[in-house]
């Protein structure tokens, strides 16, 4: 009698064989694993190289991320020998001034962890206090849990995390959100990675009032401010990406502009550079329209010194420090 299966039925023999196939037996103790090939297979280098070429400076950050990538690769190799080393704790805290690339690095990190198989989906859910904390009693817990569920399989990025805790109001609902967060960070480490971000000094006081949070975060990564040269390199990168270039005589002006801008209050590193370029684009466009006449590719892409010199930064005196 031929064996026929009804619709939707599973054959016991085939089904169990398929289910067991992915679980490789552990390698013998004297086997060798080619780490370089493992590395190439995981395509992790693409992400790390992109991190290197597209982000200027940030040496301590890149070093730490390379270390994490190495650890996860080695853990994978160890797992193939059957050595159970437990899942590393990868919750992180990014501290640094505004515009130092915290969010950008978080996006790259999610991609990296996904390629290394640490998280299943590799998406980034970026939230702030508003998304986690409710407005009335009993509103916070479901709200926080919903965000956590959305982030599962990926990275939850909490920007300006110190706003979650308001020391001046002890009945603030932020505390409830922190407690749920801590619980999930501890119990569902397999499902998501939490990254807290914020300014250094305020994060420090946030951690001192929430010691439980600090101890559950293994990696505290500080994003240094960019130097003048790095800012120029960032500016050039942004211009190139948007299809603009600086005229040779604009170079010193751009350099001078960034120096002056850095000295002013509320300087936000790469974000200020982006804004400066946006404004230069406006002036460039306005200049071209005002001049009228025929334009070619060169006129449309090259920024002249005037596009920067018209800035307020050059006309005003150096602002008082503050």
């Amino acid at each position: 009698m031929t064996e026929r299966m009804g619709f939707g039925m599973r054959s016991g023999v085939n089904g169990s064989a398929e289910a067991e196939a992915p679980a490789d037996p552990p390698l013998p103790a004297d086997a060798r694993i080619d780490l370089a090939r493992e590395r190439a297979d995981s395509q992790v280098d693409e992400v790390l190289d992109a991190l290197d070429t597209e982000l200027v400076g940030l040496v301590p950050v890149k070093t730490r991320i390379r270390e994490i990538a190495a650890l996860l690769l080695v853990d994978r190799a160890r797992a193939r020998f059957g050595i159970d080393s437990g899942r590393p704790n990868l919750h992180m805290c990014f501290t640094g001034s505004p515009g130092t690339g915290k969010t950008t690095v978080a996006v790259r990190l999610a991609e990296l962890l996904h390629r290394l198989g640490y998280i299943r989906k590799g998406h980034l859910v970026s939230v702030t206090r508003d998304d986690l904390v409710g407005q009335y009693v009993g509103h916070t817990a479901p709200k926080t849990k919903e965000v956590l569920k959305r982030a599962m399989g990926g990275v939850l990025f909490i920007d300006e995390a110190y706003y979650l805790y308001r020391a001046e109001n002890e009945r603030d609902y932020g505390q409830e959100a922190i407690e749920i967060l801590l619980q999930v960070m501890e119990n569902q480490r397999d499902d998501l990675v939490v990254v807290l971000a914020g300014y250094k000094d305020r994060m420090d006081s946030f951690f001192s009032s929430n010691p439980g949070m600090s101890s559950r975060i293994a990696h505290h990564i500080d994003f240094p401010d960019y130097t003048g040269e790095e800012l120029e390199a960032i500016g050039r990168l942004m211009l190139a990406r948007e299809g603009y270039a600086l005229a040779p005589e604009t170079e010193p002006v751009f350099h001078d502009y960034l120096e002056r801008r850095r000295a002013r209050p509320r300087f936000a590193n790469a974000r200020s550079v982006r804004n400066a370029i946006e404004r230069a684009r406006l002036r460039h466009a306005n200049r071209l329209i005002a001049e009228g006449g025929r334009v070619g590719r060169a006129e449309l892409t090259i920024l002249q010194p005037d596009d920067f010199l018209a800035s307020r930064v050059f006309t005003e005196k150096a602002a008082p420090p503050g």
Binding site: R120, K121, L148, K149, M152, G153, G154, D191
Partner: peptide
């Protein structure tokens, strides 16, 4: 609870 929207990963549903 309410239906769960915008989820990417089964872990959230399994948690509920």
């Amino acid at each position: 609870g309410l239906p769960m929207f915008d989820l990417k990963d089964p872990a959230g549903v399994l948690y509920e």
